Amino acid sequence: MNDTLLRATALGGKVRAFAIRTTELVQELHRRHQTMPTATAALGRTVTAAAMMGAMLKGEEKLTIQVKGGGPIGQIVADANAKGEVRGYVDHPEVDLPLNAIGKLDVAGAVGRDGFLYVIKDLGLKEPYRGSTPIVSGELGEDFTYYFAKSEQTPSAVALGVLVDVDLSVRAAGGFIIQLLPGLSDDEISELDTKLAALPPITTLLDSGKSLEDILGTLLEDVEILDRMEIRFQCKCSRDRVEQTLISLGRQEIEALVEEDRPAEVVCHFCNEAYNFSKEDLTELLSQLER
């Protein structure tokens, strides 16, 4: 199964919904960054949220999410756009904590609760939109729910999950965002709250073979699927871009690398791809500065 996102409405257009499977995406990030289970879950939940929020954008718009909770995992960063392209990394992929009190991966312990969730949206305007809210739990689902309520004034229910197998691979990953629009009655809101409280974890549903349509149908009545989009890992780094980054360092920095007489290696944070530059390569960059 390819990773997929569904965009839908329900209850006569009074609810907007997104549901997503990100198993392959999170597995690819685990492979590239060699994340341990707790770090895999934290990064996976963040990129899952980013992918759904990217689907709320249009055209060439894109966004970056930064989670800085003060925990041992450090910063989590995720990029996404309106085309379903996602990438991400975590400062300390080696972090792995004991299971929490209910026998689950201790994402909150790794993320921390002393910090902020930042969302930066590039909407093609002169200045990007910036929103931030305090981290309220560190579990991330609750933190994104709080972000939507406080920063975007949109009451939402956010579920995010990553199930890591015994061999450290990603067995299931995904989530949903249910957003309440004007016109919902108190009874409809109460019924939705009851269904949300009774719903098993999203990874349990995905791992048991439930489709995204099944999951939305369990929560909402009269679901209308508006579109379906493939979600995939995509990094924008390239050797040309890395060369431009090196050139931007200036002559003095590049000359220092040449004088060290050893290859320079630049590693992309997002995909962990390494770009190596020999002494000859660096000398060629110096000649470009003279042109």
Score class of each variant (00 low, 15 high):
residue 202 I to T: 02
residue 202 I to H: 00
residue 203 T to G: 07
residue 203 T to M: 08
residue 203 T to Q: 11
residue 203 T to W: 04
residue 204 T to F: 06
residue 204 T to D: 15
residue 204 T to V: 12
residue 206 L to Y: 09
residue 207 D to R: 03
residue 207 D to C: 05
residue 207 D to V: 00
residue 209 G to Y: 14
residue 210 K to A: 15
residue 210 K to W: 11
residue 211 S to H: 08
residue 211 S to Y: 06
residue 212 L to D: 03
residue 212 L to F: 03
residue 212 L to E: 03
residue 213 E to S: 03
residue 213 E to I: 00
residue 213 E to V: 00
residue 213 E to F: 00
residue 213 E to A: 00
residue 213 E to W: 05
residue 214 D to E: 08
residue 214 D to N: 08
residue 215 I to G: 02
residue 216 L to M: 12
residue 216 L to W: 07
residue 216 L to K: 05
residue 216 L to S: 08
residue 217 G to I: 03
residue 217 G to L: 02
residue 217 G to K: 01
residue 218 T to D: 15
residue 218 T to V: 04
residue 218 T to E: 11
residue 218 T to R: 06
residue 218 T to M: 15
residue 220 L to D: 01
residue 220 L to I: 06
residue 221 E to R: 08
residue 223 V to W: 03
residue 223 V to K: 05
residue 224 E to V: 07
residue 225 I to H: 02
residue 225 I to P: 02
residue 225 I to R: 05
residue 225 I to N: 01
residue 225 I to S: 01
residue 226 L to T: 14
residue 227 D to K: 11
residue 228 R to L: 11
residue 228 R to D: 07
residue 228 R to G: 04
residue 228 R to C: 09
residue 229 M to D: 09
residue 229 M to L: 10
residue 229 M to F: 13
residue 229 M to H: 12
residue 229 M to G: 07
residue 230 E to R: 12
residue 231 I to L: 14
residue 231 I to R: 04
residue 232 R to N: 09
residue 232 R to F: 13
residue 232 R to A: 14
residue 233 F to E: 01
residue 234 Q to L: 14
residue 234 Q to F: 15
residue 235 C to R: 01
residue 236 K to C: 15
residue 236 K to M: 11
residue 237 C to P: 06
residue 237 C to Q: 05
residue 237 C to I: 11
residue 237 C to W: 05
residue 237 C to H: 06
residue 238 S to W: 03
residue 239 R to N: 14
residue 239 R to E: 15
residue 239 R to G: 10
residue 239 R to H: 09
residue 239 R to Q: 13
residue 239 R to W: 09
residue 240 D to Y: 13
residue 241 R to V: 06
residue 241 R to Y: 10
residue 241 R to F: 12
residue 242 V to S: 02
residue 242 V to D: 05
residue 242 V to M: 06
residue 243 E to I: 00
residue 244 Q to G: 07
residue 244 Q to C: 05
residue 244 Q to P: 00
residue 244 Q to I: 09
residue 245 T to I: 14
residue 245 T to Y: 10
residue 245 T to K: 15
residue 246 L to E: 07
residue 246 L to S: 07
residue 246 L to D: 06
residue 247 I to D: 00
residue 247 I to S: 04
residue 248 S to V: 04
residue 249 L to C: 14
residue 250 G to I: 07
residue 250 G to V: 11
residue 250 G to E: 13
residue 250 G to N: 10
residue 251 R to L: 10
residue 252 Q to C: 13
residue 252 Q to M: 10
residue 252 Q to N: 08
residue 253 E to D: 13
residue 253 E to P: 02
residue 253 E to L: 05
residue 254 I to T: 01
residue 255 E to S: 02
residue 255 E to M: 09
residue 256 A to K: 15
residue 256 A to R: 11
residue 256 A to N: 11
residue 257 L to M: 13
